[in-house]
Structure formats: structure tokens, C-alpha cells
Simulated scan of single mutants.
Amino acid sequence: MSSDLRQALEANDLFAKKSLGQHFLLDLNLTGKIARLAGIQSGETVLEVGPGPGGLTQTLLESPAAQVIVIEKDARFVAHLKEFFKSYGDRLIVIEGDALAMDEASLLRKYEAKGAARLISNLPYNVGTPLLVKWLKAGDWRGPMCLMFQAEVAERICARPGQGAYGRLTVLTAARCNARLAMAVPRLAFVPPPRVESAVVVLENHDHPYADLAALEHVTAQAFGQRRKMLRASLKGLGDCEALLAQAHIDPTARPETVPPEAFFALAKAWRGVAL
């Protein structure tokens, strides 16, 4: 952590709040690695959620990004970020608010962002999964993502069929992105250290994404809600599940953790045709 940032935090008594799931990444060597993994291009807009004291923000501002927009829920850090990074002028835009409720498309239009925004964040553990699902549903405003999660969540995002971590989040992610687990981050890298390890996931958009995420959410909720059961049992809530499974070319005796994402896409399409 830079000595200037450390001094600013100490001077203003800025500590992490457990209620907001705050664990700060202040090692500029690590934040630099994350920025490089993210692949920021010249002229891009970067969107960061939960910057806290600004360890990652500092690295993002030193990148070729045209502007860095940060969304921070904690008013203490909104004031701190504006003051500490004021030398960057309008390249840094600090928004106070809840990212889960934020209309990112409108925000980016307001600040005249050019092209899709690249999402780069050390996400608070308590909102990481819902934010990812929200962003998977996003329109053209969203570009590639480089996000830090609790290691267990990162494994679920990047799992392969047959692995223990494979599940609903894996399938939803695969509908829109190619995901890879890019870097492990030890718990002691954070202030204060969380009880669990963390990992950075890089998500690149598909050229041909599966569009109907709402149908996929419904189907996978049924399937993985009873993941120990065969699909012909767990999918009874879909109606004539045997016919739907046949249409999607899925073995009705299979268990959900063995079925690849593409088969779930076919199942969601079949269910949507009947549901309409």
C-alpha cells in the first residue's frame, strides 16, 4: 500500500465495516496484477464496484482507461475517494449508491462513456453472486469482466461438468461468458483478513451468447434445487419433463451436475416453447 494512502486512512479513521462485507485490498503489487489481467485498453471506461479506500482504484487510474467510474455504498469512502484522487480530475467519477440497484446503462450514458464498460472489482462477498447474475443479464453497455470473489464462488463460476462445484451459477455464466480462474489471492492480502481465501475470475463475452437467461434461470433452479436426484425427478415442476428432456437430448436418469451447459440451453429453449 502506498504510504500516502495509508496515512489518509489512519488520519480519517477509515476502518472496514463488517456489515458491508468490507475487506480492503491495499497491496499495489496485487492490484497491479489484477489490472493487467483485466486487459484494460486505451480509451475504455472502467466500472468498479466497492472501491473502499481505493487500492484498486489507484491502479485503474494509472491504466490507459479514459475514465474510471466507481460505485461506493459507504459514504465515508465516497468523500475519501473524491479528496484523495482529486488530482485525476474528471477521469475519476465517484457515485454513491447500491450497485445492486444501479442502472449502469443510464449512468454510462450520463457520463458519455464510449463503447462497452469493462467491469473490474474486488466485490464485497455478500453481493458478489447477485451482482454477477445481474451483469450476466446486461445489455451492450457491459464489456469483459475481471472480478474477485470468495474462492468457493470463483470455483463455482468456472467449474466443469462432473466437478463438485459445478452448478447453477456455472451454467448461467457459461450462457454469456467464457470464464477462467486467473489468480488466487490469499486471505492475508486483505485488511482486515477475511476467514476465507479469494480468487480473481476473468470473464470474456461469447460471440454467440444464449439469450434467454430468464428461462435458463427457471430451468436450472428446478434442476439444481434437488441436485442429488435424477433430472426426471427434479424437473417435474416443468410439466412433461420427460418430453422436454427428450427434445433437449438429455438422459432423464442423468443428475444435473453431469449435464453440460449447452444441454441446459437446449432444455431452457424447449421449456420456453411449451411455456409460451
Rank of each mutant, 00 (worst) to 15 (best):
L25G: 04
A184F: 08
F224D: 12
H206F: 02
C241Y: 02
K134Y: 07
T220W: 11
P192Y: 00
L188A: 13
P194G: 03
E204Y: 00
H218T: 14
Q226S: 12
P186F: 08
E155A: 15
L37Q: 11
E262W: 06
D207P: 06
M230E: 13
C158A: 12
A268I: 13
L25A: 03
L14Y: 06
G167N: 10
V196F: 02
H208K: 15
P186L: 08
S3L: 14
A179F: 04
V274W: 13
K33A: 15
L213G: 04
Q58K: 10
V196K: 02
A211T: 13
N29C: 05
P124R: 00
W141Q: 14
G164N: 11
K110T: 15
Y125K: 03
D98L: 07
A116C: 02
V274A: 14
L100H: 09
V94D: 13
Q22S: 05
A138S: 13
R195H: 00
L100T: 08
A275P: 01
L216G: 05
L276A: 14
H80S: 06
L216V: 09
D103F: 14
R142W: 01
A263N: 11
Q58V: 02
R227N: 08
F190Y: 05
V70D: 05
P144C: 01
V196G: 03
I93Q: 15
E10T: 05
A38W: 00
L92F: 10
P124V: 02
G39R: 10
H206D: 09
D103P: 13
P64I: 09
C177N: 10
D140L: 04
D251K: 10
A221R: 15
K18D: 07
R228A: 04
R180G: 02
A275V: 09
Q163D: 05
L20T: 01
M1Q: 08
N122Q: 00
A189H: 00
I95A: 05
V133A: 12
V219E: 06
L119S: 01
V200R: 01
A215L: 04
E112I: 00
A38P: 02
F84N: 11
G115H: 02
G273D: 13
A16Y: 01
I34P: 10
R272E: 11
D4C: 10
E48R: 06
S234R: 08
A174I: 06
P64Y: 11
Q163M: 12
A223L: 06
G139A: 11
V171H: 04
H249Y: 06
K33Q: 15
A223D: 03
K73P: 03
E104N: 06
V46Y: 10
Y125A: 07
A223T: 03
L276H: 10
C241G: 01
P53R: 03
